[in-house]
């Protein structure tokens, strides 16, 4: 069951990623080219998802948007994962002042509304993917850091860590080779749930008017745009919403599969011990 969930998620994600790469590359339409004669068309053989109110091909735009959303989600997950791992491990292992500083910094990063600094960032760096990733990462690392810190604190006093210190390993070696590999499972699970959150955050930013500059649009921005014409042309909102939903479901399936798999393996280990 768990394995099936994980595999389904992986396959789904792979398919979506392939489409996001291939469709914009081979599509006869451009995502930005407006065509006054083809406004608000219903789906047809030439325009699979129809066209939007500027006459742009929605199918192409959806997959371009998927590419942007994936870039933002995966990119910020990678950066936040690294940052969170580093800060969390330092805070959890050394404790004391380092711990206090990192944790309070995380509190502050959580508490400042992201809109505030993203506005500044877009003005300074332009409204592009990198800016969005940077903006999400400013506060996104805190959750990962808290999680890694908890894991590291739990493992820090365990006997295998003490044994490693007795072989003469330095603190950094202990963190890198002994603590982080053990925290990795939980980290990966939390990152699979982080990716959708990052995509949603970007969506919120584009509602608030500081998202990626038009005509490029992420999936979230497409859904928002489609909402204006929901009553007349529901497809303009529902198609991108459906793709976004598939993307998030794929990630959730992977996460849930890994999570449950963890429990199962622990259970079978217990089984070996008691029987």
């Amino acid at each position: 069951m768990r394995r099936k969930m994980f595999l389904t998620g992986c396959v789904l994600l792979a398919v979506l990623m392939t489409l996001a790469v291939l469709v914009p590359a081979f599509s006869p339409y451009s995502y930005s080219e407006q065509n006054a004669g083809l406004r608000n068309l219903n789906p047809s053989l030439s325009h699979w998802f129809g066209t939007d109110r500027f006459g742009r091909d929605l199918f192409t735009r959806v997959w371009c948007g998927a590419r942007l959303s994936l870039c933002i989600g995966l990119g910020s997950a990678a950066i936040c994962g690294t940052l969170g791992m580093a800060f969390g491990a330092v805070a959890g292992y050394f404790g004391g002042l380092a711990d206090c500083l990192v944790m309070r910094a995380a509190d502050v990063a959580d508490a400042i509304p992201s809109l505030l600094y993203v506005v500044l960032l877009t003005l300074a760096l332009g409204a592009n993917v990198q800016t969005m990733i940077l903006g999400i990462c400013i506060s996104g690392w805190s959750g990962t850091a808290r999680m890694v810190r908890g894991e590291v604190m739990r493992l820090r006093t365990s006997e295998f860590v003490q044994a490693a210190r007795l072989t003469g390993a330095s603190s950094w070696r202990v963190i890198w080779y002994h603590l982080l590999p053990n925290a990795m499972g939980a980290l990966i699970v939390s990152l699979t749930f982080f990716v959708p959150k990052a995509i949603f955050t970007e969506t919120f930013l584009s509602f608030a008017g500081v998202g990626i500059a038009a005509p490029a649009a992420s999936l979230g921005a497409l859904v928002w745009e489609g909402r204006r014409q929901l009553r007349l042309y529901p497809g303009q909102m529902l198609y991108p919403a459906f793709v976004l939903c598939l993307l998030v479901v794929a990630l959730h399936l992977i996460g849930a599969g890994l999570e449950e798999g963890d429990i199962e393996s622990i259970e079978s280990r217990e089984f070996e011990r008691t029987i």
């Binding site: 959708p196 949603f200 969506t203 509602f207 979230g220 859904v223 928002w224 909402r227 929901l230 909102m237 919403a241 976004l244 939903c245 998030v248 479901v249 959730h252 399936l253 849930a256």
Partner: peptide, 14 residues
């Protein structure tokens, strides 16, 4: 639960 958390809240709202 997966479906609930996978769809944006304003899609639900709309």
């Amino acid at each position: 639960t997966i479906l609930g958390s996978a769809v944006l809240n304003f899609v639900w709202g709309s």
